[in-house]
């Protein structure tokens, strides 16, 4: 018999995420998946799960869950207080949650997105090979609401745990290495200098689709219209208002605003943990 969680408190936005559904961009399907994939994988590894087993991704305010059977869980990613049945419990390490006790994942103290992995993984119905919630196109399970029941898969055999798992905290300043292109030629040399030297901040309007920037606008050098073209993860798209948006996992697969540069993929996990107001610096890689 497998366990299920009842959602006691769904938090600001809690979604099911795994490695996403890459390979369908030509159909207009975003890749989706955990924004901080290294955090998801580490939480799964600590439980003996497959690295890409489905987890819950919270946003700023955490969530609270009550299992109907004893389960083992790991809360990782953004650092936050954790409690089980009202008693403080470990963050970043396996915790036992007895049947009927509430696992409370508190508000993020640092970072944005905490991950709740459970031995056996979250057992939502896969869509196109993934259990991820895609907020742009609405594929996968809906975001959690209070009272929702979330099924858990069959727990793996307990495995020896790695000692001292490293959980990087969010940086005080988000440094995003970028390669210029594919549409850097839509911008003046002055605009490209602004991108590489400007003081940007993470906008509170950021979400799983994109990390929006506040700071000096990048004016298009031409006023033409760009025909729709394929967009990559990490694309720095510049809409007509000039404020760059770094595309995250739920980004649209095609778009009509020029992409001035692309953030190198290893930096995107940190981007997903950068809270509103975090200073951002783009550096040419």
């Amino acid at each position: 018999m497998t366990a299920a969680f009842t959602t006691v408190r769904s938090g600001a936005l809690t979604t099911v995420q795994d490695a996403g559904r890459p390979g369908h961009a030509h159909l207009g399907v975003p890749r989706s998946g955990a924004l901080d994939a290294p955090a998801m994988r580490l939480a799964n590894r600590l439980l003996g799960n497959a690295p890409d087993a489905a987890v819950l991704e919270t946003t700023l305010t955490g969530c609270a869950l009550r299992p109907d059977r004893d389960v083992t869980a790991v809360v990782g990613g953004a650092y936050c207080p954790v409690s089980v049945g009202g008693r403080p419990a470990a963050w970043g390490a396996p915790v036992r949650v007895p049947a009927g006790s509430v696992l409370d994942v508190g508000a993020a103290v640092a970072g944005v997105r905490s991950y709740v992995a459970v031995a056996g993984g979250i057992a939502a119905e896969p869509v196109l090979g993934s259990r991820s919630t895609d907020l742009l196109s609405g594929l996968g399970p809906a975001p959690l609401r209070d009272g929702d029941v979330v099924a858990v898969g069959t727990a793996p055999r307990p495995v020896p745990l790695p000692v001292a798992a490293p959980w990087p905290g969010p940086a005080a300043e988000l440094v995003l290495p970028v390669r210029l292109g594919p549409r850097a030629d839509w911008f003046s040399p002055a605009a490209l200098r602004t991108l590489a030297s400007g003081a940007y901040r993470v906008s509170p309007h950021s979400n799983r689709i994109g990390l929006r920037m506040e700071g000096p606008p990048l004016q298009h050098a031409s006023t033409g219209e760009l025909p729709s073209e394929g967009m990559v993860l990490g694309a720095v798209q510049v809409p007509p208002d000039g404020h760059p948006v770094v595309f995250l996992n739920d980004h649209p697969t095609t778009g009509g605003y020029p992409v001035v540069a692309v953030v190198l993929e290893p930096a995107l996990a940190a981007a997903a943990q950068a809270a509103a107001g975090t200073p951002v610096r783009f550096v040419l890689a």
């Binding site: 961009a25 030509h26 073209e229 990559v232 697969t253």
Partner: peptide
């Protein structure tokens, strides 16, 4: 190649 995404005047080859 992981993704082959045509656009209006482009083909994106990703991965």
């Amino acid at each position: 190649v992981a993704e082959i995404v045509p656009g209006a005047r482009t083909v994106l080859l990703d991965g």
